[in-house]
């Protein structure tokens, strides 16, 4: 079964609850298990391609490495309960585990676990389906739902506008660098004007965010949505109870 079929709100709630649970533990093995499982699910149960996963994973790996280095050289030191855990580890592991290494691994693998959930959501969820699901599951007002979708659809226009504004500035002999702000300001002025026109057009077509609406697609909760949610939560709770390092 492909994960794209799951309800986006259930996926988002699963990832939120799991992250909250993970933030109250310091188990390196659990963090790595969550990260590896997320990647396995991504590569086997979604339509995401390996290169796509790698592209999004790269900044997460860079950030995790940064946290690892910061934790290793400037960690607060190993806590008393972790020292007990380290003492119970096999000698070979203990030998490789200096006092700075364990906290560094704790902090960096946690970020990887979060990134695993994030990637699983980002690469298996259609943005529009997420917004519609939020509208039905979380009672998100249609005004917000369609407002967000309209703003996202304006993005290509904003890019096009930015390019033409830069071209217009150059045509007037202005020297522009990549960080020059005047074209950004002009583009923002035009984008806000568009947003006002879009709002006016939607309202003149009869859009009213407060009136009751009928929907052509009403997402339903299925057994596999609940199974996905409960499997992840149970798995993390069991891992928190059974795993030691």
């Amino acid at each position: 079964m492909k994960l794209e079929k799951l309800d986006p709100t259930v996926k988002a709630c699963t990832s939120l609850v799991c992250v909250i649970l993970l933030s109250f533990q310091y188990l390196v093995s659990l963090n790595i298990a969550v990260f590896v499982l997320s990647l396995l699910l991504l590569l086997t149960c979604t339509r995401a391609r390996g290169i796509q996963v790698l592209k999004l994973l790269l900044p997460a790996l860079v950030a995790a490495f940064g946290l690892f280095v910061t934790g290793y050289f400037h960690g607060r030191g190993t806590r008393a309960e972790d020292l007990q855990k380290i003492a119970a580890m096999p000698y070979a592991v203990r030998a490789a585990m200096s006092t700075g290494l364990y906290p560094a691994l704790q902090i960096s693998t946690r970020l990887l676990a979060y990134a695993g959930f994030g990637l699983l959501f980002a690469l298996s969820t259609d943005g529009e389906a997420f917004i519609f699901s939020l509208m039905h599951r979380c009672r998100l007002s249609p005004k917000f739902a369609y407002g967000i979708l309209a703003a996202i659809r304006l993005m290509p226009n904003m890019v096009r506008e930015f390019k033409s504004v830069r071209l217009a500035f150059r045509a007037r002999g202005m020297q522009l660098r990549w960080y020059s702000l005047p074209p950004v300001f002009t583009m923002l002025v035009n984008s806000i004007r568009w947003s006002q026109c879009v709002a006016m057009a939607m309202e003149s077509k009869g859009f009213d965010g407060d009136a009751p609406r009928t929907c052509s697609i009403v997402p339903k909760l299925r057994w596999y949505d609940l199974a996905f949610f409960s499997c992840w939560i149970t798995g993390i709770l069991v891992g928190m109870c059974l795993l030691r390092y």
């Binding site: 703003a151 304006l154 923002l188 806000i192």
Partner: peptide, 24 residues
Amino acid sequence: WKLKDILMIAVCAVLFGVIFLGAT
């Protein structure tokens, strides 16, 4: 919230998101 407020904030949020990406 009026629709135009939501759209104005959302359009600005898109731009700020892109700026943030560049800053990253």
